[in-house]
Every structure is written in C-alpha cells, then in structure tokens.
Amino acid sequence: MLPKVKKHFLILLAVLVVVLLADLLWGATGIAFRDFINVLISKEPANSTYFIIWKYRIPKMLTALFAGAGLAISGLLMQTLFRNPLAGPYVLGISSGASLGVSLVILGASFLSPVAADFFRNDIGTGLSALGGTFLVLALMIWVAGRVGGNFTILIMGLIVGQILGALQGVTNFLANPETLKEFVLWGLGSFNQTNMNQILLMSAVILPVVLFAYFYSGKLNAYLLGDLYAKSLGIDLTKFRRTVIILAGLTAGIITAFCGPIAFVGMAVPHLARHLLKTYNHALLIPSTALLGAILALVCDLISHVLLEGYVIPINVISAILGGPVVVWVVFKQRNKMYEN
C-alpha cells in the first residue's frame, strides 16, 4: 500500500476512535473519562453512569457504527452497479418496501386486540415487518436483474417500484389514526437509539460479512467500472454480478432500515467523500475507507442529535440531511462541470 494511503487510513482510524469516545462520553449528561473507565472495569451495576453507558450509550454507539458503515458500503455498491454518482442504498425502492412493511404492520396492529397489537408493535415486530417489505422488493429486483439486459432498466424499475409502494403507503397513512401515524412518522425520521443488543448482533452479522465479501469482490467491481462490454470480455458474468451486488447492498440497507428507519444521505454522500479523500477509483481502497467514513459520519450525526438541543434527541435524518445534503449538491455541480468539459 502507498505510504500516503496508509496515512489516510491511520487518520481515519484515529478520528473514528475520537468520535466513538465522544459519542460515549458526551450527551445529555457528560461522563468523565475516569468514570467511564471505572464503569468498564467494574462489574457492579451500582450507579447511574453504569446504566447510561451499558444500556444506552454503548448500544446507540454500536448501532451508529454499523449502520453508518453499512449504509455507506451499500451506497458505494449501488453507485458502482449503476455507474451513477447519484445512486444510493435506496435507489431500488428498498426503503419504500421497508416503510410499507412497517406502516402496514403498525396500521394492522391498531385494528387488533391490545395483546396482539403489542406483539406486532414491539421492536422486533417493526424490524421484522421492515425486513419483510425489504425482501419482497429485493426479490423483485433480483428477478428483474436476471431478465433485463441493461442496468438502466433496473434503475428505472427500482424508481417506479419505489413510487408505487410510496403510493400504497399513502393509502395506509390515510387510513391510520393520528397516533399510529405519528408512530410511523417517527420511525421514518430515523434513530440509532431504538435498538437492543440482539438487534445489534443481527445487524453486525449481516453488515460485517457483506463488507468483507465486498472487499474481496473489489477486482470485479473495478473491472465493471469500464462498462458492461469490457467487464464481459474479462469473463465476468454480468447477470451474476448484478445479482450479487443487489443482494449485498440490499440486505445491508434492508437490515439497517428495519432497525434504524430510512437514514438519509449517508449512503449517497460518503462514497464521494471517500473517493475525493483518497483520490482513487479502486474498491480495494474505497471499501475500507468508505466503511470508516460512514461510521464516523453516523457517529457525528448521532452526537449532534444528542447535544444540539438540551433535553431533546433530534431525529437522525434532520442532522444527516443537513450534513449530507451539501455533499450531494456538490456532486451534482461537479457532474455538471464534467458535462461541459466534454
């Protein structure tokens, strides 16, 4: 590895450690570093600091870490698949599928007896319904990818499916009572602090293998950048390649959306930051740096959402859109300049 690239990775790792610590120590209540260490080494759940660290801060920190890294990788894979800098984890309608799943279950539960409703509306129920919606959309997209020649068709199909599902969701919103509607709207604003340890384990069990697999897939991803025909002439099976990428990116986006809601902009913006920071197209470098930057950005968003207004946790999407939006705008302007150049 080039020394300059090595330096960038070291800096990213250092920044990650700093934001990890900041996310643990800084919040509605500040925690002194010494107290934090004490909590980590002592085993007694004696004080409130112990409770805050283990029951609240560590789960939300881990959630932000995995969700940020996973969404960024999912976005990178989609941008490569469509060779389009504006693609993101949700271009295939995955967030719409997850949202519809959640709103159907939340709405359906409101018609059930209180006991049955509780069963569907707990954290697992929301997660499962989002996953169900995701898998339906994913299955449809994999089916489409096997049947059409170009990835442009897949992109259009994804957008249309997203629109249709969005319209169906409009129906459920219309039928819902104000309370369930609010519940759903809050889910849609995204959060990293609604997860328990089991969900975090499940998330990491999907995201870590995906990142690893994508890393070893770098050669194919790089070869694919030059276009379908060049990739095919190198012996890459395009249908299999598209399916693989859709599954990797879709599973990751789906599991994160299920537990954190649809998180805006991280997946679209971070790969650009990584490309421009390392000045590379090479996925063997982009994948680790995108994962690191995604985690950092998600943790920073989480931190801001907890400390900006005293006594309130601002929804993640408000923060990520304000931080990520300008990056996307910058990409659009850059693209425009490129078009004029040629």
Binding site: R83, P85, L225, L229, K232, S233, L234, G235
Partner: peptide
C-alpha cells in the same frame, strides 16, 4: 471461452468515465 476470459481483448469506440482512474 468468453465466460472464462483471457482469450480475447477488446477496444470499443465508447469512452467510459471513471473518476480518479
């Protein structure tokens, strides 16, 4: 053979755009 790769190399007329390559 094309599924294995390595027997033919192509030069097409189109020009792909890849940032930072």
């Amino acid at each position: 053979l094309s599924k294995k790769g390595g027997f033919v190399s192509f030069v097409f007329a189109s020009r792909p755009h890849v940032d930072f390559m």
